[in-house]
């Protein structure tokens, strides 16, 4: 039977130094591609939540409207925190590719702090609405609002936990094919949350102010 040794090497656990470290093992490149596929799935998940919001946001049941609730300083601060965190997360990946362990850790910590700031603003925003009496029970509009923005917030919170775990691992174990792959994938996740937020501030907040 025709067999080849190189073929077997390909499925082996060896390291290909011509690629960036996170791609250098078969396991690494499989997981990165797998995560892209997951992001495609998550994108469709968000699109359903957006659909609900777009269909329901006029259905305020005679209660609070988007015009009355949203205020510019809050959601603009949230936006800039998240945009900046996406930038710093990109810098972490950039430093990682240059093999700079401490810079990578530093940028990841900045990213987590910015993420925490974002969550802080969002929690205070939600608490304010609830204290005004604008809760999920109030109207279909608010059900859709809290669910869409809350789902994004849950994603960010999970991302913070995830990045924290990665920071600990990089500090303990340095930059190796496993940790770099983790940084790269968590980076993809974090940037993706920014993509989702871009549509949230456009469709929820800006459109809520226009219509």
């Amino acid at each position: 039977m025709a067999y080849s040794m190189e073929a077997d090497m390909e499925h082996d656990h060896h390291i290909d130094t011509s690629k960036p470290m996170e791609y250098s093992t078969e396991d690494g490149s499989l997981k990165i591609f797998g995560f892209w596929v997951f992001l495609g799935s998550d994108l469709v998940l968000f699109s359903c939540l957006f659909t609900m919001y777009i269909l329901l946001f006029r259905n305020t049941a005679g209660s609070f409207t988007s015009q009355q609730l949203f205020d510019y300083p809050t959601f603009l601060s949230e936006t800039f925190l998240l945009l900046t965190s996406s930038f710093t997360c990109g810098l972490a990946t950039y430093s990682m590719r240059r093999g700079m362990k401490n810079a990578t850790i530093a940028w990841l910590i900045v990213t987590v702090l910015l993420g925490l700031g974002f969550i802080g603003f969002e929690v205070s925003e939600f608490t304010k609405y609830v204290s005004m009496g604008a809760t999920m029970h109030t109207s279909a509009f608010l059900s859709a609002f809290f669910t869409l923005v809350g789902t994004h917030g849950c994603h960010v919170s999970l991302g913070i936990l995830w990045l924290t775990s990665i920071i600990i691992q990089v500090a303990m174990r340095g930059l190796n094919p496993v940790t770099t792959r983790k940084i790269f994938i968590a980076g993809l996740y974090w940037h993706f949350l920014d993509v989702a937020w871009i549509f949230i501030f456009t469709v929820v907040y800006f459109m809520g102010k226009v219509l």
Binding site: L45, L56, N59, H137, T138, A140, S143, T147
Partner: peptide, 24 residues
């Protein structure tokens, strides 16, 4: 998403799929 929204409706009293309060 569909399952989660109906569960939120049922457990936390939201109005995605109810007839009242503007659900669809």
């Amino acid at each position: 998403v569909d399952l989660a929204l109906l569960l939120i409706d049922r457990l936390f009293g939201a109005h995605f799929f109810t007839i009242s309060a503007g659900g669809m």
